[in-house]
Design a binder for these strands. Structure first.
Length: 254
DNA sequence: ATGGCCTCGGTTCGAGGA
């Protein structure tokens, strides 16, 4: 069983890459963020023709999330019931007995801004909701673009990013409150190469210079972490023509 | 060298991303 997450930065633009990547990789469940499509424009037929079921929650221009699955999905929930929000950033489904939560955490723009406070409020509400979900679902996976680099080793240049949005201490503390629920960072369950990231700025030739951050994560509840046999970042799609600025992260469960 | 790119909507620039 392979679970993956990928911020595609417009599914309209990236659909061919998503289908190519799925054709190349035996993924059971793929969580997408930043689809940037209203539901009436979602390419459900193309995805179903590729052998996947799909559920989605979109809005115009910004945000938007989806879960693609080879297996049936039930108990689909859009958004956090505890956090009324126009922005479409969460979709959850039960798949093969697992609760799969796909999340696009707010970016936060800059420390101290209104959007930063919204991000912290949003993360607090996510924690509270997941605490409830974990009582009902022993096996839970939270996959997505967290817009948080949890530690300095997740940043190519920690000094440059010190205290900046994505790396600030309140954001990292919010990430730890998720870990305090028992959720494990799948990537860190294993020995990993140094300086491996999931996002690189489009500017500054950042990818070529590996000026990146690890901000896309898969957190697993204890029972799923115990089944996890590997977690990798697949940099290949970042090298394709017209790539997303994020690249997929994949966890394998026994 | 503190900028540099990409996507969207809707027009040819501004907002947002990270």
């Amino acid at each position: 069983m392979k679970l993956a997450t990928w911020n595609v930065n417009s599914l309209k633009v990236r659909l061919p890459q998503v289908l190519q990547w799925l054709a190349d990789n035996p993924i059971d469940v793929l969580c997408l963020q930043e689809t940037k499509l209203t539901d009436d424009k979602f390419p459900a037929a193309d995805i179903e023709n590729a052998g996947y079921r799909v559920v989605f929650a979109g809005q115009k221009t910004y945000n938007g999330v989806a879960i693609l699955s080879k297996h049936p999905m039930s108990e689909v929930v859009r958004n956090n019931p505890r956090f009324p929000d126009e922005q479409q950033r969460i979709i959850a489904a039960t798949i093969e007995g697992m609760r799969v939560v796909c999340a696009y955490v707010p970016n936060g723009q800059s420390v101290g801004s209104d959007k930063y406070q919204y991000k912290l409020n949003w993360l607090g509400a996510l924690r509270d909701w997941l605490e409830e979900e974990l009582k009902a679902h022993e096996g839970l996976a939270l996959l997505g673009d967290y817009n948080i680099a949890p530690e300095d080793r997740d940043v190519q240049d920690p000094a440059a990013w010190q205290g900046q949005v994505l790396c600030s201490e309140p954001e990292r503390a919010a990430f730890r409150t998720l870990q305090d629920l028992g959720l494990k960072d799948a990537f860190r369950l294993f020995e990993q190469p140094e300086k491996l990231f999931s996002w690189w700025d489009y500017r500054m030739m950042a990818f070529r210079r590996n000026m990146g951050l690890r901000i896309d994560h898969i957190l697993l509840s204890p029972s799923l972490a115990a089944r996890c046999s590997g977690c990798v970042i697949d940099k290949a799609p970042r090298k394709w023509e017209q790539p997303s600025d994020h690249t997929p992260v994949v966890a394998t469960l026994a």
